[in-house]
Design a binder for these strands. Structure first.
Lengths: 178, 178
DNA sequence: TATTGTTATACTCTATAACTATA
DNA sequence: TATAGTTATAGAGTATAACAATA
């Protein structure tokens, strides 16, 4: 028989655990805010990448978003069916598909940005402006120390045969369906 | 053609996005630290609940951990096969299985606690003690404001037909396989 | 009839491999 | 032969429903 029964530190006082809780909560909140926009989190991440540099190949997009190229096919399919992007042939390399934002896709970007604003407000609205900034700074420092890419969500590390981090870009994607 | 092309705020300056990144990173870090312990995150959450009050029924455990009772069957199966818990008949209600920690299961708890220590150190080791405490406090306040249960991970909200939050207890579980 | 635990089935995601068309 | 994109297949995880034993 083991003695133990020592009292453990409550999980609310475990920053890494609270971080996990809040990360999940953040995802869910953003998911809901994105519903009226009409895209998923991952889809918005794609559009955001394209906003920075239109016309990337699916391969390049796969690397940035950290999804496998097989998954990227479906992602582009969805967005193309919704009229947010279109595939164009690259005359230089007719194997590659250049993915371009449509006007409709571009018009969606500010809506996603507004959803992000709302998400931040919803999560941190109870904090004072000073506390909010302090928290943002600390989180950014921790993310830097963990070597998390500035805008790439670690939820899709299975980049498969894609080259490692070719473009230091931004993306948002995740699984965590819960 | 739409004008836009306005510059968006980088995601690194979006606390809710960085929170999501770090939450995922925290999960992955803890997963790795738990490998030598020999249990998964969710399994550790179960054992931790039992540490507080041994002999709960699977139904009760389902409610606390926020997993469906069908899933709980498999969870208990795993832990019982590994020798960390055992099912006992409740003489008062012979339908219910009381789940009890074994000595081996109880011996595992301090190891999980050490893994949590290591996880916090690994994530926040670069911060000063003061900054670390500030961050912990701010995160706890945000979690309170979001009405997240003190020790229950929101990753399993599909409690099914289980009653809503019967015991204000602690648990850890998640999906986010990435 | 309702509840506890269990089992079975379907559905979603993902991982792996194989295929095509170009290079 | 290697690569970009696509398709197909299998696996893990979950949700839903149905079932047996007991209340």
């Amino acid at each position: 028989m083991v003695t133990s029964d020592k009292s453990f530190r409550p999980l609310r006082q475990r920053p890494s655990f609270v971080l996990s809780q809040l990360g999940f909560h953040s995802d869910r909140t953003f998911d809901e805010l994105l519903v009226p926009v009409g895209v998923t989190r991952r889809q918005y991440g794609m559009l955001r990448i394209l906003a920075d540099a239109d016309g990337r190949t699916q391969q390049e997009l796969s690397s940035v978003l950290r999804v496998h190229r097989n998954v990227m096919v479906g992602l582009v399919d969805e967005l193309e069916a919704a009229g947010f992007v279109e595939r164009r042939r690259n005359p230089a390399d007719r194997r590659a598909h250049a993915v371009h934002l449509t006007d409709r896709g571009r018009a969606l970007l500010p809506m996603g940005e507004a959803a992000l604003d709302a998400c931040d407000d919803q999560l941190f609205g109870t904090l004072s402006a000073a506390d909010r900034e302090t928290l943002g700074d600390l989180l950014a420092r921790v993310a830097d120390a963990a070597h998390l890419l500035p805008g790439v969500h670690p939820g899709y590390e299975q980049a498969g045969d894609a080259p490692p981090n070719p473009i230091s870009s931004r993306g948002r994607s995740n699984t965590r369906t819960g």
